[in-house]
């Protein structure tokens, strides 16, 4: 299991959170996630064998939320 935190550009609408949550829910290999509106962060716990840090970042960015940094 791997834990990653993605720092996004300031997220300004709470409905964005719903979108990102919806996407993560449907992403294979993602076990747990937490999308923080105020700190504009996405915390994800995932299985390295199924998906990857980059693949998740790519999916977040495809939704229209540029990732500033990953920790």
């Amino acid at each position: 299991m791997t834990n990653k935190t993605y720092q996004l550009e300031a997220v300004s609408c709470p409905s964005c959170i719903l979108k990102i949550e919806g996407m993560l829910k449907k992403t294979k290999g993602v076990k747990e996630y937490d999308v923080l509106f105020n700190s504009s962060r996405v915390k994800v716990t995932f299985d390295e064998d199924v998906t990857s840090t980059e693949a998740i970042q790519d999916r977040i960015e495809k939704l229209g939320y540029p990732v500033v940094s990953v920790k």
């Binding site: 609408c13 719903l18 979108k19 919806g22 996407m23 829910k25 939704l63």
Partner: peptide, 8 residues
Amino acid sequence: ALRYKIVG
């Protein structure tokens, strides 16, 4: 968003 069935 629509791909994940979210209407925004």
